[in-house]
Computed example of a mutant assay.
Amino acid sequence: MAGRLAAPLRRHLLAEEQGSVELLPGFTVNGVDVGIWTTGQTDPTVWDTLSPEQQKRLESLGLHRTDTAPAATTAAGKGEAFERGIAALTQYATREGRVAVPRAHVEETPHGPVRLGNWISNTRSSRNKLTVEQREQLAAEYGNANMDLALRGLELKTLDPYLAGWRMRVVPALGHLAVRMITNGAVDRTVQNWIADDLSRSTVKNTIAVLVRVMEQAVRDGIIKVNPARVTGWQKLYKQAEDELLDPRALALPD
Rank of each mutant, 00 (worst) to 15 (best):
17 E>K: 04
17 E>M: 08
17 E>D: 13
18 Q>M: 10
19 G>T: 11
19 G>Q: 05
20 S>T: 15
20 S>P: 12
21 V>N: 02
22 E>P: 13
23 L>Y: 00
23 L>S: 05
24 L>R: 11
24 L>G: 03
24 L>C: 07
24 L>S: 07
25 P>T: 02
25 P>Q: 05
27 F>Y: 08
27 F>L: 11
27 F>G: 01
27 F>C: 12
27 F>I: 11
28 T>R: 14
28 T>A: 14
28 T>K: 08
28 T>M: 12
29 V>D: 10
31 G>L: 00
32 V>M: 01
33 D>R: 02
35 G>K: 02
35 G>S: 10
35 G>D: 03
36 I>Y: 00
37 W>H: 00
39 T>M: 05
40 G>C: 08
40 G>S: 13
41 Q>F: 07
41 Q>C: 05
42 T>Q: 14
42 T>G: 04
42 T>I: 12
42 T>V: 09
43 D>G: 03
46 V>S: 01
46 V>L: 04
47 W>M: 01
49 T>Q: 14
50 L>R: 11
50 L>N: 02
50 L>I: 03
53 E>K: 11
54 Q>S: 10
56 K>M: 09
56 K>A: 11
56 K>I: 06
57 R>D: 11
57 R>L: 15
58 L>E: 04
59 E>Y: 03
59 E>K: 10
60 S>M: 07
60 S>Q: 12
60 S>L: 01
62 G>L: 09
63 L>K: 13
64 H>V: 13
65 R>H: 12
65 R>T: 01
65 R>D: 04
66 T>V: 08
66 T>Q: 08
66 T>R: 15
69 A>L: 09
69 A>G: 15
71 A>D: 15
71 A>Y: 07
72 A>H: 14
72 A>R: 14
73 T>C: 07
75 A>V: 11
75 A>K: 15
76 A>H: 14
76 A>L: 14
77 G>T: 07
80 E>D: 14
80 E>W: 13
81 A>K: 02
83 E>L: 13
83 E>W: 13
83 E>Y: 03
84 R>H: 00
85 G>A: 09
85 G>N: 06
86 I>G: 05
87 A>H: 11
88 A>P: 02
89 L>E: 06
90 T>Y: 07
91 Q>H: 06
92 Y>D: 01
93 A>H: 01
93 A>W: 01
93 A>P: 03
94 T>K: 10
94 T>D: 11
96 E>N: 10
96 E>W: 05
97 G>W: 00
98 R>L: 06
98 R>C: 10
98 R>A: 09
99 V>Q: 06
101 V>S: 08
101 V>W: 00
103 R>L: 12
105 H>D: 04
105 H>T: 01
106 V>G: 00
106 V>S: 09
106 V>L: 10
108 E>G: 06
108 E>K: 15
109 T>V: 02
110 P>A: 07
110 P>G: 00
110 P>Q: 06
110 P>W: 03
111 H>D: 11
111 H>I: 05
111 H>Y: 07
